[in-house]
Design a protein around this nucleic acid. Structure first.
Length: 260
DNA sequence: ATGTCGGAGCGACTCCGA
């Protein structure tokens, strides 16, 4: 079973690119972030034509997440619990049958948090606190649970080409990194770090200032696995080549494979 | 040293968010 996450930066602008990648990579489950579409306008048909079931949680203009699965998506829940006043579409959860068991997926688009000194950074930290509470609840259920998406957190200096350039950025603040570590300390395994020790393992390259050409990347898209999911993990990868395609997203797909 | 992109609202440019 192959499971992927990708911040596509706009489903309308990326439709052909995403279809091309789905044909090439053929994930069983794909989580997308920044669909930038309301649910009614999400182009479901092109994905259904490729054999996917589709569930979305979108809003107008920005944010928005989606889960695609070759097998049915069940018990779909939208919104991260913990703040009924939060109107931003950043979380969707669903269960997929896998072999003789099930896997629950949480697809997330964690707030960016920039610029520091505005209400955006405490919103990010509050959202991470809610995610910690929710993950703890899911982990207590002791079923395979995978929390994947654009975390907007650079976990460690090794996860940036030029970490010194990120010291004033919300993605690399000590508080952001501490809360990300706290998630793993609940017992979740961060898949890419568990699968590879390769240097310069990045998932995002800014559109600006020739970041891609200079490999000036960061690693902010993560797949966190509960113990029951981690026990099944076979391998992982990052589809870096997709960043070099025509009309790319600034992020690339990240994936894991699980034993049946 | 600088370099971008997507979407919305408006009315073919400017702003926002990243």
């Amino acid at each position: 079973m192959k499971i992927a996450t990708w911040n596509i930066n706009g489903v309308k602008a990326r439709l052909e690119t995403v279809q091309e990648w789905l044909k090439e990579a053929s994930p069983d489950v794909a989580c997308f972030q920044e669909i930038k579409s309301v649910d009614e306008n999400f182009p479901r048909q092109p994905f259904e034509d490729l054999g996917y079931n589709v569930e979305t949680h979108g809003q107008k203009g920005f944010n928005g997440v989606a889960i695609l699965s070759k097998t049915p998506l069940e018990d779909v829940e939208r919104r991260l619990p913990g703040n009924d006043d939060d109107e931003q579409a950043r979380y969707i959860e669903a269960t997929v049958t896998h072999g003789d068991g099930v896997v629950r997926f949480g697809c997330l688009y964690l707030p960016n948090g920039n610029p520091l000194g505005t209400e955006k950074f405490p919103y990010k930290l509050g959202w991470m606190d809610r995610l910690l509470v929710h993950a703890e609840k899911r982990l207590a259920e002791e079923v395979p649970f995978i929390l994947l998406g654009d975390y907007n957190v650079i976990p460690d200096p090794v996860d940036a080409k030029n970490p010194e350039n990120w010291t004033d950025d919300a993605l690399f603040q000590p508080e952001s990194r501490q809360k990300f570590r706290a998630l793993t300390h609940l017992g979740m395994t961060e898949a890419i770090r568990a699968c590879t020790e390769a240097p310069e393992t990045f998932t995002f390259w800014d559109y600006q200032a020739g970041a891609w050409q200079k490999n000036n990347g960061i690693r902010i898209d993560h797949i966190l696995m509960s113990p029951q999911a981690n026990d099944k993990m076979l391998g992982c990868g990052i589809d870096k080549h997709v960043r070099g395609w025509e009309k790319p997203s600034d992020h690339v797909p990240v994936w894991v494979t699980l034993a049946a």
